[in-house]
């Protein structure tokens, strides 16, 4: 058990190391000198040299790389050029809307996807299955920003049920702020439900053909109990995985939706950073988001051991 967790932790660190390395060297690919990019067109040669020195850009790339790894390992993601504050702080300030958006979106996606996937598997090949499978494919074909624009037009502009954009006043109470998340969460919930539906269907179909489901039928249990307790209980592990990983990907993957709805979240921060070439922010955000994904992945593995008694190693 401990050895298995240690092994997973080592794998986690390896992935993070590769992400950090990738981010570092890819950033060096960017055309132009970072210092002159940071300072803009009006900078003098002296200014640029000064900045190169403060950011260590005058040292060899290998040295920069080692220094950068050290900084990350100590939890320092650097300083935002444009925002004039530590990257981690900038990300922290933007975390709330992104966190709640990811949470609500995955809830909606699961509430749609899991029941639809179950129904689709139970009535495999019937009209219900065809409808669900077709709808899932349709949902996976919708660009989230487009659906967002349509929702804004209809529910916010036309009907006036929800705010058009933004996240409200920072001083307003939480409920007031969360109202701004209803429409974006619906958009992301619908779009991401497709994957959860397909996964639920596939894993339920796998389990429903197992011998122990036949045993449960032989016991004379009602079909609902067979499906929900015996089959779903065994399909839960892959379903938890896909729900968890989708949630993790939503933290950084809601960029487009955050932009459409003008939500000041992490995705929005990344887009602004890209447009302003604020590389420390982009790099920092990538590290944080990959870290969240890896951490959730790790948590899921731990949950496995709780849900599935067979996993003991």
């Amino acid at each position: 058990m401990v050895a298995a967790i240690a092994r997973r932790l080592a794998g986690m660190l390896a992935v993070m190391f590769i992400v950090a390395t990738m981010v570092f060297f890819l950033t060096r690919l960017a055309p132009g000198d970072p210092a002159s990019l940071m300072l803009g067109d009006q900078a003098t040669a002296a200014d640029i040299a000064e900045l190169r020195k403060t950011y260590g850009l005058d040292r060899p790339v290998a040295v920069q790389y080692v220094l950068w790894l050290k900084e990350i390992a100590s939890g320092n993601l650097g300083q935002s050029i444009f925002l004039q504050r530590p990257v981690l702080q900038a990300i922290g300030e933007r975390a709330e809307p992104t966190f709640f958006l990811a949470l609500f979106s995955i809830l909606i996606a699961s509430l749609i996807g899991i029941p639809c996937g179950i129904a689709s598997a139970v009535w495999r090949g019937r009209v219900a299955d065809q409808t669900v499978s077709g709808s899932a494919m349709l949902a996976a074909s919708i660009p989230s920003f487009w659906l967002g624009l349509l929702f804004i037009q209809f529910f916010a502009v036309r009907l006036g049920w929800f705010p058009v954009a933004g996240y409200g006043d920072p001083g307003a109470d939480l409920a007031q702020r969360l109202r701004h998340l209803v429409l974006p969460a619906m958009v992301l919930g619908i779009v991401n439900s497709a994957l959860i539906t397909r996964f639920t269907r596939a894993s339920m179909l796998d389990v429903l053909s197992e011998d122990f489901v036949r045993t449960a039928r032989a016991k004379g249990l009602p079909e609902s109990r067979i499906v929900l307790r015996h089959a779903l209980g065994n399909a839960l592990v892959p379903i938890i995985t896909v729900v968890g990983l989708t949630a993790a990907l939503l933290v950084g993957g809601a960029i487009v939706t955050e932009t459409v709805f003008g939500l000041p979240g992490i995705g929005n921060l990344v887009v602004s950073a890209v447009l302003r070439r604020d590389y420390p922010v982009i790099q920092g955000a990538l590290i944080v988001i990959a870290g969240i994904y890896v951490l959730i992945n790790f948590t899921i593995d731990v949950i496995y051991t709780l849900v599935d008694p067979r996993v003991e190693t």
């Binding site: 992400v19 487009v256 995705g267 990344v270 070439r277």
Partner: peptide, 21 residues
Amino acid sequence: RIVDAMMSLPDILLAIFLVAV
């Protein structure tokens, strides 16, 4: 391992980063 690392980032985020650089 590299594949794992790349898949730990959302598609659109990795894409926007790459286009940025």
